Amino acid sequence: MKRVGVIGGGQLALMMGTAAKKLGVELIVQTPGRNDPAVGIASDTVFAAVNDAKATNELAAKCDVITFENEFVDLEALSQIASQGVCFRPRIEALSPLLDKYEQRCFLRDLDIPVPKFILPESLFAVSSVNQDIYANNRNDWELSFPSVLKARRHGYDGQGTFIIKSLTDLEKKLCLDSSLLLEEFIPFKKELSVIAARSTSGEISPFVVVETQQEQQVCQRVIAPADINSQTEKIIQDIAGTVLNTLQFVGIFAIELFLTNDDEVLVNEIAPRTHNSGHFSIDACFTSQFEQHLRAVCDLPLGNVAMNCPCAIMVNLLGYETQTSNYIDKRSTLAKIPGSYLHWYGKSESRPGRKLGHITVLLDDKNRDRAMTIARNIESVWYSQ
Results as ranks from 00 to 15, higher is better:
Thr261Tyr: 03
Asp263Trp: 01
Asp264Ile: 11
Val266Cys: 01
Val266Phe: 01
Leu267Ile: 02
Val268Gly: 12
Val268Gln: 10
Glu270Val: 04
Glu270His: 07
Ala272Cys: 10
Pro273Ile: 03
Pro273Tyr: 04
Pro273Arg: 08
Asn277Gly: 11
Gly279His: 09
Gly279Gln: 07
Gly279Met: 09
His280Thr: 04
Ser282Glu: 10
Ser282Tyr: 08
Ile283Asp: 02
Asp284Arg: 08
Ala285Glu: 04
Phe287Trp: 13
Thr288Trp: 08
Phe291Met: 06
Leu295Gln: 07
Leu295Asp: 12
Val298Asp: 09
Val298Ile: 15
Cys299Pro: 00
Leu301Arg: 07
Leu301Cys: 05
Pro302Cys: 08
Pro302Phe: 07
Pro302Lys: 10
Leu303Met: 13
Asn305Phe: 01
Val306Phe: 01
Ala307Ser: 14
Ile314Asp: 14
Met315Asn: 15
Met315Ala: 14
Val316Asp: 11
Asn317His: 07
Asn317Gly: 09
Leu319Tyr: 06
Tyr321Lys: 14
Tyr328Trp: 11
Ile329Val: 07
Asp330Asn: 14
Ser333Tyr: 01
Leu335Pro: 02
Lys337His: 10
Gly340Glu: 07
Ser341Asn: 00
Ser341Val: 08
Gly347Cys: 02
Lys348Gln: 01
Ser351Glu: 03
Ser351Asp: 03
Arg352Gln: 04
Pro353Val: 04
Pro353Glu: 06
Gly354Gln: 10
Arg355Cys: 05
Gly358Ala: 04
Ile360Arg: 03
Thr361Pro: 13
Thr361Phe: 14
Leu363Glu: 10
Leu364Ala: 06
Asp365Leu: 12
Asp365Ala: 13
Asp366Asn: 15
Asp366Leu: 04
Asp366Glu: 14
Asn368Ser: 15
Asn368Gly: 10
Asp370Val: 12
Asp370Arg: 09
Arg371Gly: 08
Ala372Phe: 01
Thr374Lys: 14
Thr374Ile: 07
Ile375Met: 11
Ile375Asp: 04
Ala376Cys: 13
Asn378Ile: 00
Ile379Phe: 02
Ile379Ala: 07
Ile379Val: 14
Glu380Arg: 14
Glu380Met: 15
Glu380Phe: 02
Glu380Lys: 14
Val382Met: 03
Val382Asn: 08
Val382Ser: 09
Val382Pro: 00
